[in-house]
């Protein structure tokens, strides 16, 4: 148990304390991204815990129709709705990503052909140049047709000003890519000449631009899909509004609390109220009408006494946190945590 806690921290501890040369020499730097991802994965695997708990607690209330079962039902409906809406929207989005990727391949493939022709790879076998170009041109023809049909569909679905600019851009880039495809088809590909290499590079750049415009138009088209609208409705219409409203309640409660509870009975509470009033008046539009230097007074209060006192609190808490972190990592204070099963 303790060894697991220690192992959990040892990697990051070593990564931070070892000199960069040592971190590089032992291969930590090269795989740091993947190892860090591994740590995130461990936490990410717990995502189901919350859902499981909620379904267990509220599901049983609905099934056995215990008091408040209707509210539990509403909760489960909300949960199911957001999970399904996100899942459907994600599936559609993944499908579109594949579609976009299939266009990106054009530019990447052209670059790869040039690279391989210049420096033939030793670790894999590649087909002859002419054969690769023929495959590129054939694939390019297919993709450009697909882009054209999708762009036409977007136009048929209705365009606004912004979309029509995008559509114009895609069509322009599509025409440029087709011209280059024609030139690729016409050129001789016995070997890679400088002219041919330039042609391939230009095609690769045009194809990348086409892919990026196409991805934007495709995504803006998808933004009008039903799944996206359902997701937007749940987020903008319910989640966002309910979240804001819940916290906005505190705005009125704080007013009632200010009237009932903020009583000046001692010098200290007087100081507290004075500071609160200066901060409030200093940041509002009417503050300077009451006293011209109110914003400066507020600034001074926040910069000097507040910052000093808050820094003392932070440093105190920080040192305590550091001690806790060390004790936690070294399992010095883990008796209650590892005292076995109960």
């Amino acid at each position: 148990m303790r060894i697991f806690t220690f192992l959990g921290g040892v990697y990051f501890f070593l990564y931070f304390v070892l000199p960069e040369s040592a971190v590089t020499a032992i291969g930590m730097k090269a795989h740091h991204e993947q190892i860090s991802n591994g740590f995130i994965v461990i936490g990410a695997m717990a995502v189901g815990l919350g859902i499981f708990n909620i379904v267990r607690a509220h599901g049983s209330r609905v099934v056995f129709q215990r008091p408040g079962w209707f509210n539990s039902f509403a909760l489960l409906v909300g949960l199911a709705a957001i999970i399904s809406a996100t899942a459907v929207q994600w599936i559609e989005s993944t499908r579109n990503s594949r579609d976009i990727s299939s266009v990106q391949v054009l530019g990447e493939f052209a670059t790869r052909i040039t690279d391989d022709a210049r420096t033939p790879p030793t670790d894999r076998v590649v087909p002859p140049l002419a054969q690769r170009i023929a495959a590129l041109v054939r694939y390019g023809d297919e993709r450009t047709e697909l882009i054209e049909s999708h762009t036409n569909l977007s136009v048929e679905a209705g365009t606004n000003g912004a979309t029509s600019v995008l559509v114009g851009e895609v069509r322009e880039r599509l025409a440029a890519a087709r011209v280059k495809l024609g030139e690729l088809r016409a050129a001789s590909w016995e070997r890679l000449t400088e002219d041919n290499a330039t042609l391939l590079t230009q095609f690769s750049q045009d194809a990348a631009k086409l892919a990026s415009s196409y991805s934007i138009i495709k995504r803006s088209h998808d933004a009008h899909s039903t799944s996206q609208k359902v997701y937007d409705f749940l987020f903008d219409g319910l989640f966002n509004q309910l979240g804001s409203a819940m916290f906005a309640l505190l705005g009125v409660y704080i007013a009632a609390a200010a009237y009932r509870a903020f009583r000046v009975r001692t010098v200290e509470s007087g100081l507290m109220m004075m500071a609160a009033v200066i901060v409030m008046l200093g940041q509002i539009s009417f503050g300077k009408e009451i006293y011209e230097n109110m914003p400066s007074l507020r600034q001074w209060l926040l910069e000097v006494p507040n910052s000093a006192a808050f820094r003392a609190i932070r440093l105190g808490a920080g040192v305590a946190g550091l001690m806790l972190a060390i004790r936690m990592w070294l399992s010095i204070e883990s008796k209650s945590f590892s005292s076995g099963r109960k």
Binding site: G50, S72, G78, L79, A81, I82
Partner: peptide
């Protein structure tokens, strides 16, 4: 409750 459901999912 609807909010809690959406937030947890």
């Amino acid at each position: 409750h609807l909010f809690i459901g959406i937030a947890s999912g």
